[in-house]
Design a protein around this nucleic acid. Structure first.
Length: 158
DNA sequence: ATCTAACAAGTGG
DNA sequence: CCACTTGTTAGAT
């Protein structure tokens, strides 16, 4: 089994996104932390030339995106259940932390769901940005709320 | 709009 | 095991 991780750097106006790949499978994704609202509109510095980059470009520009192969990362059983449930959320739809908790059969574990979301090693590919609070509150986002707002803004118009 | 108590799981001591 | 910390929530103020 070859587990050689190749790292690709995707430069954008919002900073550099690091994507870890094993073959053509995405295994990690690191977004630059955004303190506040970025001053520039989002754009890639260069044309996307691989599936993972094209996916990100489409997602951030409001187009329908085909998700490349990705691996569910290591984690506790609970975390993997949460991540898998998040991965089922279709583009353009959102769901609440409470919904998610119910989906994995632990209706009262909504707080823990939030924690698992925050530890999501594959933002964008596992769309934790589509998980929002019950009363319309956005919740949080590990790399800065600007990402989450932008992503939801793109997907909302459907 | 802001504050608090209770919630479940993860982490560090 | 105990004491924190979370990308929460519902309810009171």
């Amino acid at each position: 089994m070859s587990s050689v991780i190749q790292t690709k750097e995707l430069r954008t106006t919002w900073g550099t996104i690091g994507i870890g790949m094993v073959g053509n499978t995405v295994v990690s994704c690191e977004l630059p932390f955004l303190q506040g609202e970025p001053t520039q509109p989002f754009a890639l510095a260069a044309k996307a030339d691989d599936p993972a980059s094209r996916f990100i470009e489409a997602l951030l520009s409001g187009k329908r995106a085909k998700r490349p192969a990705y691996a569910l990362p290591e984690g506790t059983v609970f975390q993997r259940q949460v991540w898998q449930a998040i991965a089922e959320i279709p583009q353009g739809r959102t769901c609440t932390y409470a919904d998610l908790a119910r989906a994995i059969g632990r209706p009262k574990a909504l707080r823990a769901v939030g924690t698992a979301c925050g530890r999501n090693p594959l933002p964008l590919f596992i769309p934790c940005h589509r998980v929002v609070g019950s009363n319309g509150h956005l919740g949080g986002f590990s790399s800065g709320l600007a990402w989450k707002r932008r992503l939801l803004e793109c997907e909302k118009k459907h």
